[in-house]
Every structure is written in C-alpha cells, then in structure tokens.
C-alpha cells in the first residue's frame, strides 16, 4: 500500500513585498505559478510537492502587462493565453506563433510566461525566441533587483543564475522591426525528446540586403543552439540568397551540430537543416 506523504505548507502572498520576504525566509520553497510543468509527470491523485509551496497567482505586481513605444513588459505570472490576448498586431509575429504552440488551449490558461522561461531542467518553447528578440528579465529578491539579458539566466551548462530568494518578476520584450519572422515546432508537449525541435528565425532586410539575421533552435534539453558564425556569413547577402550561399550555410550548420556538445538525433539534424533552408527561401518573398 502506498502511503500518502505529508501535505505541503502552501502560501499565497498578495503583493511582491510579502512574496520576497517569504521567499527569503524559505529559499528552498517551490515557487508555483501555473504548475503545468511541475505536474506534468505526476499521475497519482495526491501530487508530490515539496514541504513549502509559494503560489504566485495572487501577487498583483506579477500580473501586469505594460507597453511603451520601445518595449512590452509582461509580468511573470501572466498566463500564456493572456499574453496571446495582447494580439498578433502587437506581439512579434514569431512570438505569437510560438505561444500558440505551447500546450493545449486549456493548459495555456494555466501555464505562465515566467514558468515557460524558468523551468530548470529544459529550455521551453519561448526561451530561444525571446533570446533572439533580445528580451530582458527582471530578477528581484528582498532588498534588490536587477535586469539581465534572458540568455544570462542560464549558463552554458543550463544552470540557473538565480540567487537564493531571487525570483523572475518581469519580462521585457523590445519592439524591433524584424520583417521576416519564422517559428516552427516539431513534436508536442507530450512527446519530448529526440523527435522534437523548434526553429526561430528573425531577419531584417533593406533594399534587398540582409542587415541582421538571427537563428536559434530549441527543444534540445537544457540548451539552445544559436550559431553566430552562420548569422555572420548570411548578413550582408542579397536576397534571394543564391544556391551556393544557401548550401554553404546549410553545410556550416551541419558541421556545427556535430561539433557542439548538445545531444542531437539524426532526425533533429535533418529537420534543423530543412528549417534553415525554408527560412532562407522565405527571405526571398519579402
């Protein structure tokens, strides 16, 4: 007979001050936003939760969205569907498509943007894209706050740079004129592993020349794959990109995927190259 473990102590602070002081006093507590990732692999009636759980949904400051001419700022406890409700004309097109691919409509009502970024054991859907968009995140703890680039949230081995008692409170996404934005995802939340892959591509073209181009791959465990060598090679080229340059970029990607220390299946490699080719073809349509 399976014995039920002791029930956790749960806390629902209603403002940021209470949340930070509570988290300071118990830095080992589980910070619970939507909980969709935490509960994903639990099948029993009684959920397995740590001794202390801090529920974020009631913290008013984490549920705000604000917008200026230069950026959009989203509270970390905002649900994915609420971010989508900002609208496709305001959100970057690739981000809108990316968010539509997160879970199911019901899950998106529970899952939060902060949670999608903060999961420690894998980089979720939005992470590579927000990285390309130069998003910044605000980290706060009792007595201090700091803004960092989202790519600095985890080190190269995927370890979080959050200090004890520190919490992600806001995500700032700059508005930038990316005239080509592509997001593709293979596989689903239910099938993570060797058959999943996401592709994010952003480009700025002017008078038929690529001014800036960024490419990243996600769904690869704790890391994302961004290759600046390919980006540098493609920048400055005229669109449509000729066959030789396209083949060269694809070759470079293949070489790099073999060199880097991320475990990528052959299926993922093939699809990664296909996504790059489709993206480069798409540039010609601008």
């Amino acid at each position: 007979m399976i014995e039920k473990s002791k029930s956790p102590h749960t806390y629902s602070p209603e403002n940021l001050g209470d949340l930070l002081s509570l988290y300071k006093s118990m830095p080992d507590a589980l910070v619970y936003g939507g909980g969709t990732y935490i509960l994903k692999n639990q099948k029993r009636e009684f959920l397995s939760l740590p001794e202390n759980v801090i529920y974020l949904k009631r913290v008013e400051e984490l549920n705000r969205i604000s917008r200026t001419e230069r950026f959009l700022e989203i509270g970390s406890s905002i649900s994915i569907n609420r971010v989508l409700s900002i609208g496709k004309h305001i959100l970057p097109a690739a981000l809108y498509n990316c968010l539509l691919g997160v879970g199911t409509p019901g899950i998106r009502n529970l899952a939060t943007l902060g949670g999608n970024i903060c999961v420690r054991d894998r980089r979720m859907d939005t992470f590579p894209l927000l990285h390309l968009l130069d998003a910044r995140v605000e980290l706060r703890k009792a007595g201090g706050s700091r803004w960092i680039q989202i790519n600095r949230l985890f080190d190269s081995e995927g370890k979080a740079s959050l200090q004890p008692g520190e919490i992600l409170t806001r995500i700032r996404i700059p508005f930038d004129e990316w005239n080509v934005q592509v997001y593709h995802k293979l596989g689903s939340r239910a099938r993570e592993g060797e058959t999943t892959l996401s592709f994010c591509g952003l480009a700025k073209t002017q008078k038929g020349v690529i001014n800036d181009i960024r490419i990243a791959y996600g769904c690869l465990g704790k890391q994302i794959l961004r290759n600046r060598e390919i980006e540098a090679e493609l920048s400055g080229l005229k669109v449509p990109i000729n066959i030789k340059d396209t083949a060269s970029a694809m070759e470079l990607l293949k070489e790099n995927m073999d060199k880097i220390g991320i475990a990528i299946s052959n299926f993922q490699k093939k699809r990664a190259v296909s996504f790059l080719r489709l993206f480069l073809l798409r540039l010609a349509e601008v």
Partner: peptide, 15 residues
C-alpha cells in the same frame, strides 16, 4: 476555472 477552460487534473486544491 475563473472563467477560462482548464484541465482540472492540473489544478491542485490549494489554488
């Protein structure tokens, strides 16, 4: 759940 569809299997009682 609070006016929006949600899977009740992913909602713990404390919320």
């Amino acid at each position: 759940f609070n006016g929006e569809i949600a899977p009740s299997c992913l909602i713990p009682a404390f919320t």
